[in-house]
Design a protein around this nucleic acid. Sequence first.
DNA 1: CAGGGATGATTAATCGATTAATCAAGTCTA
DNA 2: TAGACTTGATTAATCGATTAATCATCCCTG
Lengths: 349, 349
Amino acid sequence: MATTRTGSNLSQIAATLGVSAATVSNALSGKGRVSAELAEKIRATAAELGYTPSLTGRALRTGRTGVLGLVLPDIANPLFPQIAQAIDYAASNAGYGVLIADSRGDVATQTDAINRLIERGVDGIVIVPRRGTRIADIGCPVAVIDSPSTPGNTVSADHWQGGQAIIEHLASFQHRKFLLIGNNPASNVQNDRIGGMRSRLPEGGHADVFWIENHEQRHGKGSLLGLREKVKQGFTAFAAVSDLHALRALTELQRAGVGVPEHVSVTGFDDLVWSSVVTPGLTTVRMDMAAIADIAIAALVRVIEADTTSGSDIPRTVAGTVAAADRSSVPMQLVVRQTSGPPTGIILS
Amino acid sequence: MATTRTGSNLSQIAATLGVSAATVSNALSGKGRVSAELAEKIRATAAELGYTPSLTGRALRTGRTGVLGLVLPDIANPLFPQIAQAIDYAASNAGYGVLIADSRGDVATQTDAINRLIERGVDGIVIVPRRGTRIADIGCPVAVIDSPSTPGNTVSADHWQGGQAIIEHLASFQHRKFLLIGNNPASNVQNDRIGGMRSRLPEGGHADVFWIENHEQRHGKGSLLGLREKVKQGFTAFAAVSDLHALRALTELQRAGVGVPEHVSVTGFDDLVWSSVVTPGLTTVRMDMAAIADIAIAALVRVIEADTTSGSDIPRTVAGTVAAADRSSVPMQLVVRQTSGPPTGIILS
DNA sequence: CAGGGATGATTAATCGATTAATCAAGTCTA
DNA sequence: TAGACTTGATTAATCGATTAATCATCCCTG
């Protein structure tokens, strides 16, 4: 509880040493003018008394809480652990706490979630926006993690380049007929990944895009994707935009008696937790979430801290949102496992 | 930013109406004595000015921040999304925010994480402890989510009963030779699940326990589990303590040419995100995370709120930790999909 | 030796809400 | 009608840290 806590505050230190609270504050923060000896003594007793500044008190005075908000479209997203972990780590290192807010699906809740965070006085917000959502100008610094195609202060993996890497890898095995498996055509991230893939098709190569959501609207949720048929049509490479879909493809193919990787190859995206333990291990492409989080947090922190020190050096829109990172993208890294290899035809009856 | 925010505070409302800030506070909180008409007028102007109380100001005065901490052993855990989502939802409904803290593996960091949260002034903490960790008495209300075998104020799913449900389901298909697949023998949760499973073995049934960590220590990380051999030995049911391991088993078996479910059955635990999309869909057992979160949060809130109202009605250990939920467990629910069915022998060469 | 600076510390105001203590009327009872 | 309550509102202190303004010394220079 904040009430009883460690039981030591500025004035106690001050009282112990017979000085004023202001001097203690100055000594500990290094601001103001305090003699070296006294400062040392103050630091010593502070340590002795186990002094921890009350972030609440400080927040009230400075207007900064030292807390960042993390808004996620849907926590159930399997990528979430990676994101949350990276953000938490980067924020901790920068001395900030992370308040989470799940926007639980719909867009209205996303706005709600953001407002709740602002009410709580967060200094800035990291948003992983819901598909197709634009983040309106809210009155606080924002960093968006999405795809480089998203307008606004966006940090993201270079999904396009990731797509290229996958296709180059597959093409090196002489694959020529690709099925690119996406989920939702409205997703910027997915379109970037698919765009990147298409941009690197080999000479004489051919690629079809298969959207799972469209398929499920016709055949029901969880239905087979009909990949056996695709194999019969000569597709030998199945490149999904997420490991989740790659896993779906892999198991469906295995079940249909198609050998992976000896007959066809399957690849995913994101290196989700199970990708390394399935048999065969899933070839995929990984984002450097740590780097992304670092950039996002650094951008936020820069803006937050500039906000009080210098008046307004850093670009800042009228309403308060800030051009934080100004669009940077982090390269993705190919992770080659066992689901990719040279194709050998297979005759299915 | 907390500084510029909505730009309306108690005194502004007071000034607008020509009354004192104290009266406004009383009117809005319903405490003190304020005439009905004035109270109504105050509420009206508050709404008009878009007043949002400064949680920081309130926190400083009341000593309660309205924030709960969520400590996780390892955010990378695939179960994490479910937990975080449920906790976030329950906490939001109770009017609390959730500050996350990843303990990143080691136990020392777990303590660190807890301390950081306390410094931030959280009113209570929900902990999903690292395997084998005991939560020491810290100076604030705590609710632990683990297994009923964990001492302390624990809320959890009834893992034992979940194990029983799985085995009963499998036994109903006449399975008799079970391989129970666990990861780490030190985990309370896993032991509960396995214990429950063993307790419901059918007449003449036999079960071996296979610990993946032990196996990997000998054969290397990510190596095959050798399930083909197990099938040859007559095992027909492979019951894992997590969907992650079930998936590993499923793909390994498929790859080895063993048909699931026609030859052998595979089951998991937790109904993780991919379980419904793999082919065949994974039979598993689900925790009611929403209920668990509700109980945990409700227990915390009860203690937190009792702390200020009545002196100390609720049991409270000397150091400050509180016997919050006092051990309650929530039943698990069987989710039958396609990986379970009647076994037919298979002859492997 | 008086006055301008530099140095080191203190005062007091402030952030925003809460709340105990107080005060001014009006109401009721003896 | 005086004294005791009620009712409705105000004052002022408080939570803990920060910081501008102020003040007291001591030093140095013209």
